[in-house]
Amino acid sequence: MKPVRALLAAVLLAAGTVAGAGGEMPAGKRVAPPAVAPLTLHGVRYEAPPDTRDFGDDQAGGYLVARDARSGRELWRQRIYATAYDPKLESDVQDVFIASLRAGRGGRTLEITDERGRRYTLHLGSRAVQEQGVQNRR
């Protein structure tokens, strides 16, 4: 039985999940949010900032910011989706960030995908958001 325990301990150690001296497991931490390149259309630069709580928003991720491409002045900010946080869990492991941003329909919409594979369309004229569903993720 000792060789099996030694092998299991080696696997857990390699994975970084062996409990500390007090027997507790280290807290799970998420990886950094994906870097999403800004997109410029018709003189407006659209950005998906990694943490909009810095600007007073109630969640990290899920927002787009529109800026004048020349001056950098913020024109508007739009929440694309809401993240429901469980107060019993660490918030950073519950954050859901925008993973991709691209132009759609002749530059009249933006197509957004979040880390969970959910797809959204933002209609630039009205700033209405439509959820499109989940794309297959491998």
Score class of each variant (00 low, 15 high):
residue 48 A to L: 06
residue 61 G to V: 11
residue 71 S to Q: 00
residue 86 D to W: 05
residue 51 D to Y: 01
residue 53 R to H: 05
residue 14 A to C: 12
residue 22 G to V: 05
residue 121 T to Q: 11
residue 136 N to W: 11
residue 67 R to C: 10
residue 70 R to V: 15
residue 11 V to S: 01
residue 18 V to K: 03
residue 3 P to M: 04
residue 38 P to I: 01
residue 75 L to F: 06
residue 21 A to S: 06
residue 46 Y to W: 13
residue 4 V to A: 06
residue 97 F to H: 15
residue 25 M to G: 13
residue 64 L to H: 08
residue 53 R to P: 14
residue 13 L to I: 11
residue 42 H to D: 15
residue 85 Y to D: 00
residue 12 L to F: 13
residue 15 A to M: 10
residue 20 G to S: 09
residue 45 R to K: 10
residue 72 G to T: 14
residue 117 G to C: 08
residue 73 R to E: 10
residue 84 A to L: 07
residue 128 A to V: 09
residue 32 A to E: 13
residue 114 D to P: 13
residue 63 Y to A: 00
residue 53 R to Y: 04
residue 70 R to W: 05
residue 94 Q to C: 08
residue 104 G to M: 05
residue 136 N to M: 15
residue 119 R to W: 03
residue 124 L to N: 02
residue 34 P to A: 10
residue 93 V to R: 03
residue 102 R to L: 12
residue 84 A to K: 14
residue 117 G to I: 08
residue 116 R to G: 15
residue 41 L to H: 01
residue 130 Q to M: 07
residue 16 G to H: 00
residue 112 I to R: 03
residue 130 Q to A: 15
residue 4 V to W: 11
residue 2 K to T: 13
residue 10 A to M: 07
residue 32 A to R: 00
residue 128 A to K: 09
residue 45 R to D: 08
residue 119 R to D: 05
residue 30 R to S: 15
residue 112 I to Q: 03
residue 130 Q to S: 14
residue 113 T to Y: 00
residue 26 P to T: 14
residue 66 A to C: 05
residue 101 L to S: 04
residue 137 R to K: 12
residue 91 S to W: 09
residue 24 E to M: 12
residue 99 A to Q: 13
residue 84 A to I: 05
residue 4 V to F: 13
residue 99 A to H: 11
residue 104 G to R: 02
residue 96 V to K: 02
residue 87 P to Q: 01
residue 67 R to H: 09
residue 63 Y to L: 03
residue 120 Y to R: 05
residue 109 T to W: 00
residue 42 H to K: 13
residue 62 G to W: 03
residue 33 P to M: 05
residue 108 R to V: 07
residue 93 V to K: 01
residue 36 V to H: 10
residue 51 D to Q: 00
residue 48 A to D: 06
residue 83 T to M: 01
residue 50 P to G: 13
residue 3 P to T: 10
residue 128 A to F: 00
residue 69 A to R: 03
